[in-house]
Design a binder for these strands. Sequence first.
DNA 1: ATGACTCCATAGATTTTTTTTATGGATAGT
DNA 2: ACTATCCATAAAAAAAATCTATGGAGTCAT
Lengths: 305, 305
Amino acid sequence: MNLTIRQLQAFREVMRTGSVSEAAKILGRTQPAVSSMIAGLENELGVEMFKRQRGRLVKKPEAEYFLTEVDAILNHLSTTVRTMKEIGKLKKGRLRIACMPAASQFMIPRLIAKFLEDKPNINVSLMMRTSAVIEEWLTSQQFDVGLAETPPLNHALHTKIFNLKCLCALRSDDPLSSKKVITAKDLSNLPLATLNEGHPNKLATEDAFRKEKSILNQRFEVRNFQPALKLVEEKLCYCICDPMSASGYLDNQGGFTKLLFKPFEPYVGLSVSILQPAHRPPSLLAEMFVDKLTEELNKLIEQYG
Amino acid sequence: MNLTIRQLQAFREVMRTGSVSEAAKILGRTQPAVSSMIAGLENELGVEMFKRQRGRLVKKPEAEYFLTEVDAILNHLSTTVRTMKEIGKLKKGRLRIACMPAASQFMIPRLIAKFLEDKPNINVSLMMRTSAVIEEWLTSQQFDVGLAETPPLNHALHTKIFNLKCLCALRSDDPLSSKKVITAKDLSNLPLATLNEGHPNKLATEDAFRKEKSILNQRFEVRNFQPALKLVEEKLCYCICDPMSASGYLDNQGGFTKLLFKPFEPYVGLSVSILQPAHRPPSLLAEMFVDKLTEELNKLIEQYG
DNA sequence: ATGACTCCATAGATTTTTTTTATGGATAGT
DNA sequence: ACTATCCATAAAAAAAATCTATGGAGTCAT
């Protein structure tokens, strides 16, 4: 097949205007250029589209039929091109994000909101799941981007690791609030809210207390830090929480806040990762979002050390 | 929009094979040619379709989406082109024929059959109507070709006129069958089957008898000559019929025939025309059919005329 | 009828685009 | 380390599209 899109466009314009000269003007070419495009078209298809009578072109039935097809084809092409250009400018697209609970409360929604500010036609789906499920979903390429606790090495996943330092949450009127840094010793035997048994954060906290030979008095066991912080607000306990939850809490309280977050020692870490399917390059959209997310996490690390 | 079909084809092939080099082989181009087509495509759309990693191209999600559209477009285009080429070779198309009774019995169907011998996919519709209706249908461009008694001059119609000479039908065992030419005098007062009052053929026949001062003894009045010839077969009458009906009758009897058709004098004419919509060039198919029909009518004139 | 216009097709010159040849860097397999 | 394969790039060559110029043919108004 040896047709060109320009020939089809020229044909359509000639059909519309009924004249080679007129079509040429509209297409921004000279009349002979259009004339020869039409001739080439007729030649290629082996069909005479116009009768040349009295110096004019008169459409033949064959041309009418061809026009309907050409018109559909050109329209389809041009909407496709438009869509692609919008994708290129991040104006259109789809982004599937899977996210661990700690970040899904405030951080990710806020980030998405900001990311979508100038992108009204992007379709985003956000799912909150445990890190293990997120890992699985990313591996099977059902999602574009995941944020989860760093999973064991998995060659089907591209992981970008961030080591976050957990903080101690306490009321601003707490006696300890004057200290710059809270230590395990400070909290020895004081009531604590922790995550469930076996969670990396819980384990790391236990380690920290053991290292300092302090007593971990676990008063509450919670699934994520959202409710834990409420308990701290009520003066019922302390908690060693990750900085994403902390920053989410602070942002959400809008300046007026009952809680303080202080550095905690010894180090209680939380290793989270941005996950992407390996062996499948990300869409431009995913790439941009990952950039934003990376930026955000680095800001968090910088801020809380 | 500045894409070319070749770019789309190249893109599709690269997606299919996963390789520029492979696609180049299949497309019959060199690898750099394909490489630059893809580059041009990406550039034009502002979207990176492939990630160049480890010396290979890896498809991005954007490319998958684009492929589905491109594939649909190219398929639509290629079937359209194929159809047009078939139209060009008269393998496909539509032909609407309207035809007067005299010709619709045998002549036109036979002609259509022959015309369609090598055209299995042509769609033909044949309607038999009175000449007045045919004229109207052709004027309103509902039909491509008409065959009717010559209508009054009509600028919306292109007419090709044929003057046919009517013949006298008689049994082969009739006493008159030895004569080379039958005259009105021969038939004076003998029973005749004629068309209905007011029909041009009837008028012309009356004229002929009047001119020869013979008596027209109308025994039967019929709508067309088909039944009239049956009556002649039964020895009930004679009739002055048009050569289309005559030739149709003869063809249909397959050599073994009870009737003879002799020249009749004085001249009783029937003026028929091939009608086509003016101001609208005919399809190639219509043109070809009109040629065949013209040929057939000229043969008739030559044979009887 | 004639002259002024407009239409489309053609030819040759020219510009633009595409394709090729040649080459180099990167990667994977042996 | 050697070889083969992949893709990108640059310059040269080839091909295609477009332009200018022109001519024939028809229309319209005078």
